[in-house]
Design a protein around this nucleic acid. Structure first.
Lengths: 214, 214, 214, 214
DNA sequence: CATGAATGAGTATTCATTCAT
DNA sequence: CATGAATGAATACTCATTCAT
């Protein structure tokens, strides 16, 4: 990588860093491009050499941060291993929940954007590839524990969405209860979800009765 | 209610109606207060007689619409009754999912705001009281089916959050799959969640192993 | 005075009082008619039954307050008498200066309006007549001390303007020095002004040389 | 100074000029920023590149204009010299009074703001430095005439405040008399003030009697 | 007389985007 | 590549004033 290339990368990282600080402190809507370049100590025009607009920067940032968070959770799991696929998932959930409890701003920011859409988006654009790696690790863990799951992606999706939505409510608004109080129930729900997705024998999906019978 | 009172109510409803149309068509961010009052055929200053700003109007509107949606789902259930608490819940979920599939704009609007925080807010302010009624109906259904649940609010919370988050992703972005495809899995997960919250005998909450044991 | 008359007077006084509080706390420009009637616990339309607009209210208020201040200074002099016209004037100046030092807000408000124009205005409109009385007392004091002055009004004008302008600067901005430090010089200047206006023999008014001579 | 720098200076001067014209013609309160930029033939946003708001522009303008007026008075003195410090001061006062009599708008504008606070402010900020120069010239004049004054700043302050306040009243409102009529008395008062500040022998500052003695 | 809901003209201020240097 | 001065469209919000009740 040439000197020029490095320089460009540095500038872009400055923008990412500045934007992240501002988004999490002032909020996205109240952060202007002026703010960002001032904090990054770059000229206004320079911003447009790296990003289309504020929204593109935000989305890339969410993907970066969320992807990183998942990877961190995985790395933490490697450092402090537990046995059994379900335990491993719960451990990673705990790590993420704990992290977000200490980072309200981050939670606020990626908040309801910690969704499959964005993660998938990050995945497809293969920007830093991190999400892809996480998904591979996830499949690997399943395999190592000899867990059979016909829809691993849907299972992960379900868990991520439930965790994300409840974190938002419990951590940021203490609604309906604090995260501390809700965590056992989240665990239980995740446990049941994993079970329902991995039961090999009776893959009976629930259907609503549609008739008016009693 | 005096003539004046009625007149005021009418004006406020005009604002609600105009705002809802605009929010769901142009999007919230692109809707200006000028737009709203023009559509409602009122003077600009009149807006500020009824609402602090655009955000207050939005939040009240979300609460109204979401509350209404839940009530509609309940009413639909009454009109087409099914037996058994779980079936009743699933039926209401289906109604809501179906409604949102046909109303992307509404989903977009209340989207990730269809959360406990807002519902609770609407509930506490008892503005249109609708949510309160829904929650009461929910408890009633449980009672009628002789279902025992120690944490009915947390159960509802868990179901609502999971449903809301997955609707958003599947309906609006078809990620990771279409809602049609995901619905059976949502049913199954809700089924398991209800079971986990209503099992009387073995109320064992799942804890993560924290040791490094095998 | 009929009951109705009294009621009207009470309402008007409410407005005066509310306006004064607001003008001295928030400043004149930032005080709205809404603020005033809200504080006076009257309806908006009522304001217009008593005053043309904010400016009329302000000017009447300044005249009232300034007139009152002068009268207070005089009354204080009566309670604590000193001999000699000059001493009496200085005593009243000290009273006013001291009062304004403790009432920055009042000084700010009547500030540079403590001028002959407004005082005269108050005098002519004979609203509460207080200024007229003060001017009469002033002439009386001069007479009692057998002081002869051909232009008593111009002398008073000169003293009032000098005092008002220097109070503003020294008290509110400590420029060029604090009022405490400036007071002796103010005394000295007033002393000289009185002398120049009351010297009977050599009423020689100073003229500038207009030629280019040496 | 680069081309860019010159261009910026030109733009700022356009704003100053346009604002001054409008302030003195329509009045400060009725002049909008839109008016100013339209007259200066600049874009609205450009205003905010040079000034915080209308008030900052006004204050800087007052300092500029007042400073300039003082310098003009001095230059006029140089062109038409008179001997003696007191005569020089009176000559400058006459110049300023005459100028303001012909420029009611300017007087109205800088009116009661022709105070030490603003002059000092202009002086300290050393923006156009003019006031600083005036004050130096003033000291120089005193020195050349061998006038000894222990408090030259307080003397100038006293004279400036008295002159400013009386000009406002006599010129703009003819209260209590016209400036023409008052001028001799102003001269006499200034004469006495100078004398009181420059008397070397009997520097006795006047104190009020505080006792109740006869 | 008193009220206060309704009005809508009026203004400050922001900020994404461009482009000459 | 990088800069940052200039732009001007866009919008929220205020508040004096009126008038039907």
């Amino acid at each position: 990588m040439g000197k020029l290339e490095i320089n460009k990368k540095l500038k872009q990282n400055s923008l990412y860093q500045a934007a992240f600080d501002l988004f999490t402190n002032k909020g996205f809507a109240k952060t202007t491009i002026s703010d960002i370049v001032k904090k990054a100590e770059l000229a206004k025009g320079t911003f447009y050499l790296y990003f289309e607009d504020k929204y593109e920067l935000r989305d890339k940032l969410i993907a970066r941060k969320a992807g990183q968070l998942f990877l961190d959770a995985y790395e933490n799991l490697i450092e402090h291993p537990v046995s059994g696929f379900e335990n491993q998932i719960l451990r990673m959930i705990d790590y993420i929940v704990e992290y977000l409890r200490k980072n309200h701003m981050l939670l606020q920011f990626i908040s309801k954007n910690l969704s499959w859409g964005i993660l998938k988006n990050a995945f497809e654009k293969t920007v830093p590839d991190e999400t892809q790696q996480f998904y591979e690790y996830y499949l690997e863990l399943m395999k190592k524990s000899s867990v059979v799951c016909r829809q691993p992606e849907l299972m992960l999706f379900t868990i991520v969405e439930l965790t994300g939505a409840t974190c938002y409510s419990c951590i940021l608004h203490n609604q309906p209860v604090s995260m501390e109080e809700y965590l056992p129930y989240l665990h239980r729900s995740v446990h049941e979800i994993i079970r329902s997705f991995t039961e090999s024998d009776q893959d009976v999906l629930i259907q609503t009765d549609t008739g008016k019978d009693a």
